[in-house]
Simulated assay, not measured.
Amino acid sequence: MTISKHIYFAGPMFAQSDLRYNDHLVKQIRALSTELTVYLPQENEAINDKSAYADSKMVALADTEEVLKSDLMVAVLDGITIDAGVASEIGVAYAKGIPVIALYSDTRQQGADNPQKLEALSTPAENQFHYLNLYTVGLVKLNGQVVATEEALLEAIKQALLERRD
């Protein structure tokens, strides 16, 4: 018996680099299993063809419907801040008990045990690390996990889908 799994992919999608990275990650996720369907919002031209028109309600309804159909959400947290749409989608997933696996690959995480970097925290404007909104991160961790590499992301997805199969 084949068990279909639906994954919602939440990521920033307004720069070409975002679109390409999302596409890159989704190709890897889709390659994990033929049982997977992955909703990548940028592929939904009805609401995300930026030369056309979709109002806020159309976008909210289309993406929320897909979140609610999902067995799992994959969310990219990278960027200057967590993308506002991604944060909203994480909130919907949390409220509905949909597990979230988030990728946070910011290189400023490295060196967390470096004494100079830690000492710099006490000097104004010398934070060597990146800050993420703790509320949004907390929602992820309450019903999922944050990983730091693409490899860890793919492994976590495989594990989550195995657990959901039981």
Rank of each mutant, 00 (worst) to 15 (best):
Q128M: 12
I98M: 03
E65W: 13
N133L: 05
L25T: 02
V86A: 00
L77D: 01
Q145I: 11
L132D: 02
K5N: 12
L134D: 11
I29P: 01
A75G: 04
A54H: 04
S33I: 04
Q116M: 15
I3T: 14
N143P: 07
V140A: 01
R165N: 15
S4Y: 11
L32C: 10
I29F: 03
K69R: 14
Y94R: 10
G97I: 06
E66M: 10
E151A: 12
M58E: 15
L68S: 09
Q109I: 11
D55M: 12
A102Y: 02
Y104F: 15
L32H: 05
V92G: 04
T37E: 12
E119V: 14
R164M: 10
P99C: 09
Q16P: 08
T149S: 09
I47P: 02
N114M: 08
T149F: 08
N48W: 10
Q16C: 14
N44R: 06
N127Q: 08
Y39T: 03
V59F: 08
E163N: 08
D113K: 14
L103E: 01
A10H: 00
F9Y: 07
E45C: 08
K5P: 03
K117F: 09
E126H: 15
L61A: 15
E150C: 05
T123W: 11
A102H: 02
G91E: 05
S122Q: 12
T2E: 12
V100R: 01
A148N: 14
N48V: 06
A75N: 03
A152G: 08
K50I: 14
G144F: 02
E126I: 11
N127D: 11
M13W: 00
Q159F: 13
S88I: 10
A87Y: 03
G111C: 09
S33G: 08
K158G: 09
G91L: 06
E66P: 04
N114Q: 10
S70W: 02
A160R: 01
I3C: 11
V147C: 06
T107F: 12
R20E: 11
R108L: 13
T81Q: 05
L68A: 10
V86C: 00
F129I: 04
E150H: 06
D71Q: 08
N143D: 15
K50F: 13
L103C: 10
F129Q: 03
I47M: 06
P99D: 07
A46N: 13
A75L: 04
Y8H: 04
K158T: 11
Y131A: 15
A120F: 07
K50S: 15
G138A: 06
A60N: 12
Q42I: 03
R164Q: 13
T81Y: 03
D71S: 09
E65P: 05
Y21G: 04
A54Y: 02
S56A: 15
A93E: 00
L68R: 09
I29Y: 01
G85Y: 01
K27D: 13
A93G: 04
E150D: 12
A93F: 02
S56W: 13
L153P: 00
T123N: 14
Y94C: 08
D166N: 12
G11M: 02
A15C: 14
V137R: 03
P99I: 03
D18S: 03
Q116F: 15
D23V: 08
L154C: 07
T64W: 06
S70N: 07
E65K: 11
H130M: 09
L121V: 10
S33E: 05
V100H: 01
T81H: 05
